[in-house]
């Protein structure tokens, strides 16, 4: 299996992306600051306002939630929309199409490399933050199986985000600028229904039900809910099944768009 992974160049391409990211250290730090800032602001806001009686989240819950939001956000991030639309516009997609290598695999590997590299600053950041709030956050419930589910949920969340983003990105074959569409579907709706602005568990019942059906919750809130010990085993399994459904559905959508899009691709530029 590992030799297969090496022989057709995927490992070499993955390593190349790691090398590129390390070349642009400054860019990585700026990107990190951008992604760290907003959850910190939101955590402060939620801690400073008075909670309603039926809010299931205490200050301690909010602290843990927003301690983990930057971690999950960064580990499930995807830049495929920006990268792919640029590749269609400037013709650099041509390069990928001429290689005996799956063209979209590069974007997948780039996401893995980019997101893994975030751990370099996410780990120290999380421990520093943890040091200051450790007396207010309860972690006694954590078991190895829960941590395993947590890691699996991050991977599933990353895949879900990549697939939804990928489908939007592939619309670049027809739409000149997909970034606005991305801001709506993968920015605004993701922030709201994914649980960045408000934890999904604190939504009114009807909205929470919708959020649990859509893919966004699984890109951010779901792993945190698992880590917080707020979900029962059946809820965790149901969550994984829902996320898997969306991943498969968007993989099929991507395939259809890709095949159709290639026929209309005009291969402008060098």
């Amino acid at each position: 299996m590992s030799s297969m992974f090496k022989s057709d160049g995927k490992f070499a391409v993955l390593l190349a992306y790691f090398k590129i990211i390390m070349t642009y250290r400054g860019m990585m730090i700026i990107h990190a600051i951008r992604l760290l800032l907003l959850p910190m602001v939101l955590a402060s806001a939620w801690l400073s306002i008075e909670k309603t009686a039926n809010n299931p989240y205490s200050d301690s819950d909010y602290l843990l939630y927003y301690l983990l939001v930057p971690v999950i956000m960064n580990l499930t991030d995807s830049r495929i929309v920006f990268k792919f639309s640029l590749a269609v516009k400037d013709g650099s997609l041509n390069r990928d199409l001429l290689k005996p290598f799956p063209p979209l695999m590069g974007y997948f590997l780039e996401s893995i490399a980019g997101n893994s590299m975030q751990l370099f600053y996410l780990v120290p950041f999380t421990f520093i933050f943890w040091y200051f709030v450790s007396d207010r956050v309860m972690l006694g419930h954590l078991e190895p199986s829960l941590l395993l589910f947590f890691v699996a949920a991050i991977i599933i969340g990353g895949l879900a985000r990549l697939m939804v983003s990928g489908a939007i990105a592939l619309l670049s074959f027809w739409i000149e600028d997909v970034t606005t569409l991305n801001l709506i579907l993968n920015g605004g709706i993701w922030a709201l229904l994914g649980g960045m602005i408000v934890p999904v568990a604190t939504f009114p019942d009807k909205i929470r039900y919708i959020a649990e059906l859509l893919p966004y919750r699984y890109m951010l809130s779901f792993p945190i809910e698992i880590f917080s010990g707020r979900l029962s085993s059946p809820e965790i399994y149901r969550g994984f099944a829902t996320a898997a459904f969306w991943i498969i559905l968007f993989a099929i959508i991507m395939r259809v768009i890709w095949k159709t899009g290639l026929k209309t691709y005009t291969a402008y530029g060098g």
């Binding site: 057709d8 160049g9 490992f11 070499a12 190349a16 590129i20 290689k99 005996p100 290598f101």
Partner: peptide
């Protein structure tokens, strides 16, 4: 573009087997 040519050669070698 972001890597030296020798790195491209090495990637190319793997992709083309």
């Amino acid at each position: 573009w972001d890597l030296p040519p020798i790195e491209t050669f090495a990637i190319h070698r793997r992709i083309y087997g």
